[in-house]
Design a protein around this nucleic acid. Sequence first.
DNA 1: AGCAGGATTTTGTGATCACAAAATGACATG
DNA 2: CATGTCATTTTGTGATCACAAAATCCTGCT
Lengths: 234, 234
Amino acid sequence: MPLRRSALQSGPTKPEAGHTPSRGATREQVDAAIRAGLLTGRFIPGKAVTIRGLATELGVSPMPVREVLQRLAAENALEVKPNGRVQVPDMTPARFDEVLKARLLLEPELAELALPHLTPGDAGNLQSIDNDIDDRLISGDAEAYMRLNHAFHFSIYRASGSKVLLPLIDSLWLQFAPFMRTVYGRVGTASLVDRHKEAIRAVELRDKEALRSAIAADISEGMGLLGKEILAGT
Amino acid sequence: MPLRRSALQSGPTKPEAGHTPSRGATREQVDAAIRAGLLTGRFIPGKAVTIRGLATELGVSPMPVREVLQRLAAENALEVKPNGRVQVPDMTPARFDEVLKARLLLEPELAELALPHLTPGDAGNLQSIDNDIDDRLISGDAEAYMRLNHAFHFSIYRASGSKVLLPLIDSLWLQFAPFMRTVYGRVGTASLVDRHKEAIRAVELRDKEALRSAIAADISEGMGLLGKEILAGT
DNA sequence: AGCAGGATTTTGTGATCACAAAATGACATG
DNA sequence: CATGTCATTTTGTGATCACAAAATCCTGCT
């Protein structure tokens, strides 16, 4: 086997020695790798993803990949077709509307719940992430933009300590991210707008309503307008 | 092994002949069995659930059970502890508040989306389910009540044809159902109230707002009041 | 009796195998 | 050249195995 460079492996591979690292570590590694790949759009919707393929790509046995694929299918991040093939589900207008609606219902709510837990230090981190985003936008690095945008939102949401709403939102992001990647591939990243600055100010001022509307506007303008346009032209 | 009567198997077991039924059929069977068990409260929160145990109980190999458990863990219906053990997560006040909030955000919305698709025939089905529920309430059959109450709500929600909101709500029900079972075990079923009648009338009249508030009231009165009371006393 | 400590069993995890279904490709036929 | 057919390969699925960690049980001591 030629050991080709994988698009999923960012750092050097781990299995240096035969020692088992810890309980379920391999599965978590595989899970993190595939999740990150989905969130940054490295999987193309409609393209089949094979168990053995990912397994050899990640240098593990098919077993942990099988389990992770089932997990992601349960979160509707992947779709198991009746023949057993697994693929990233392709976006439909109906699905898009639903994801948008769900995001608008849940994300402002969770941001509000997180607000009391956000420290001035967190606001600083958000500021720094947003600066990175601006850099990536002008350099046109869509993959890095998606990773940072995810980091921005979830830095807020995670502060809530939520164990229910957060996983739901997680599932939503996994569902729309691969599609948005294809959108950015068409319209580029230069025209992207967000409401991150308003959100940061709202966090600094601890203004509940301002944060809600910043998040809501970020969603409907950033995702809503762009996506509708693309889906209409298909 | 004495082949004890399983609490999960309702009918006679299937694997009569060695013929493979169809693609992934075993997994679906296992998935349906465990899901139904969770929704009717046949699993006790905090009690560990073992792969091999379920496997022999269902008469299958551990493999499909492993995958299904991973799926359900991804939906937060089960919890994988750091040692790998899998159990039904026990309810905490914080978790309960979040589930309640999420239900109130999502379920009235999906009911409204479903309303245009609900026919007079559907209203009749709802009526018949609700009649069954009333019978079970006075006879005190908590397990049947939970199954029918689930059927009532999801008969509405499924009509929406939703592929995003519906799975999210599915996940929520799997999370609170086992806890509610313990609640019914304490307070009995005679005192349960619901807003099903109002919901049915709203469906018949195609009254959007009436349906929303019927569902919302059903949630906050049926689940909210009962749960708060129990959690406060723990 | 209470309890620590070690042996035994149980359990999850990752790997591999066998099999059937599906996808793929080659090839012959119209 | 298009098209249907058949052989080959790939793929998912379920089962089984080996191993280590965890839990459980038993025993012997104070």
